[in-house]
Amino acid sequence: MSDVQTIDLEATGLRAMNAQLQAQARQTNRTAWEIVNARGAHAIAAGLDAPIEVTVRGSTGYYCGGMNQQALIHVHGSAGPGVGENMMSGSIVIDGDASQYAGATGHGGLLVIKGNASSRCGISMKGIDIVVHGDVGHMSAFMAQSGNLVVLGDAGDALGDSIYEARLFVRGKVRSLGADCEEKEMRAEHLDILRDLLERAGADARPEEFRRYGSARKLYNFDIDNAY
């Protein structure tokens, strides 16, 4: 374990800070970084590609950790819109709440939101795992293609609208399901996936408490009755 490298975002500036983090090689031994004075700035720790741990003190603005590969990012605050957008691997943990479209289009990695996530959480997700300890807002997992969305609280309107093949696990109430999203059978393999995700996300919940939702597969297959 190396010493923690602390960057004062106000003094360093966003571009210089991100350039420094992005320049870390995959074999770097400077593995622990701390960003102070986040003050809601945009694009904090975006585009990282090294197995480093980045601790952010304060809340972040748009696109924190966007496109992340390998890095383990922990925000001690809340996150603005698009946290972890298009994440490929690694993990992002938000201690507070996340604004709209958290984890949008994410291909891989784990996004954990300890508070609530607002609308469109996991929109167009493509393989990312998202665990929200609280609630998610309307249109979450809209057009989701792959990956797992786990919600310990409630889900808002139109959950999983136009979903392809992602798995949605909700412990609380679902206000309404979107087009072509339906409740699915919870099989042993799903309980295993869920148990693993809950453990990795530090979530105090049992897999058996959840219901699973997914695609009815009626929208994205060709159906002559859908043609004009």
Binding site: G40, S59, G61, Y62, Q100, S119
Partner: peptide, 25 residues
């Protein structure tokens, strides 16, 4: 639909609105 951003903060002294949290720091 709520795609236009909004953040609010309330204390015993004030209620504040910002399009982004940056405005409130």
């Amino acid at each position: 639909i709520a795609c236009k951003p909004a953040v609010m903060a309330e204390t015993e002294s004030y209620v504040a609105f910002g399009s982004e949290y940056r405005a409130l720091v």
